[in-house]
């Protein structure tokens, strides 16, 4: 074998949309996958230098350390309001929020509802792992009935704590919501579908059509008390029945983009 025959072929690399920082996410957590998908989409669309992200309060509070683009860190639940202010004065920028279930569906329920109702031309990436991660595993608005958390030690009793909120189903009822879909990150096939949906959501924004949201069912092995593999199985066995995957709102105005 000569040197000339040793041709390197690069088939996998870090997207430009991510920094080189080592994340603080727990092993097996799907935040890393969601970050990568977002960064790949932003790279492929060539919009990194015109994109502004908004981080939540929750496990992704330091997202701005991991994304290689302009970023703001919002108050808990207020990212859609902050994104509204930013987008309204910078309509040519791509503005997205990245929010967990406590942030979006609990303390920020009002802000997300009205951002969607206004048809705010922003993209929301909604990480639903059915638990509060950063504070150590308390009940989220998306915690399943019977699910044990540190604040529902005997399991979520719906007579005491009520029922989980299904945000795609709720937001899809609003006229301002243009693209509202639920995907999952529990296996490769679904990860690929998730990426397509994220791309579609950003295309919707670029076309100025209105509010877009991709909900991503995600794992939290640490607070669920499982191995990474068990946690992915738990998504499939327990979360998928409660949070069916699918397209909840795809406005007829959306013209399908060609890529991916």
């Amino acid at each position: 074998m000569t040197n000339k025959e040793l041709v390197e072929s690069l088939i996998y690399t870090k997207p430009e949309g991510l920094t080189s920082a080592v994340t603080h996410y727990c092993p097996g957590c799907t935040h890393g996958i969601a970050h990568r998908l977002l960064a790949e989409v932003i790279d492929e669309m060539g919009v990194r230098e015109e994109t502004i992200g908004i981080a939540p309060v929750g496990c992704a509070v330091f997202a701005y350390d991991y994304f290689n683009m302009d970023f703001a860190e919002a108050a808990h639940g207020r990212a859609p309001a902050m994104a509204t202010g930013l987008k309204r004065v910078s309509p040519d920028k791509v503005v997205f929020t990245y929010q967990g279930d406590g942030d979006l569906a609990s303390i920020g329920a009002g802000e997300i509802l009205h951002a969607a109702g206004r048809g705010e031309n922003i993209t929301v990436i909604f990480i639903n792992n059915a638990i509060y991660g950063m504070t150590g595993g308390q009940m989220a608005p998306t915690t399943l009935p019977g699910q044990r958390t540190t604040s529902t030690p005997l399991g979520r009793d719906v007579e005491m704590h009520g029922f989980p909120l299904r945000m795609c189903e709720i937001l899809s009822q609003l006229d301002g919501a243009v693209y509202v879909v639920r995907r999952s990150l529990h296996n490769v096939a679904n990860i690929r579908k998730a990426k397509k949906a994220i791309r579609q959501a950003f295309e919707v924004q670029r076309q100025g059509l209105g509010f877009s949201m991709v909900e991503l069912l995600s794992s939290c092995p640490t607070n669920w008390g499982m191995s990474a593999a068990e946690a992915l199985n738990w998504i499939e066995e327990h979360m998928l029945p409660a949070y069916p995957l699918g397209d909840y709102k795809v406005s007829p105005a959306i013209s399908k983009h060609g890529g991916n």
């Binding site: 703001a72 509204t84 930013l86 309204r88 004065v89 009205h114």
Partner: peptide, 26 residues
């Protein structure tokens, strides 16, 4: 220019926060 009636004062001040982050007078 931009005028928006927010859904609450909580949202209004966070919209202000967002616009201020973009460097405009708000």
């Amino acid at each position: 220019r931009v005028f928006l009636q927010a859904e609450s004062e909580v949202a209004a001040i966070n919209m202000v926060y967002g616009a201020a982050s973009a460097g405009v007078r708000v």
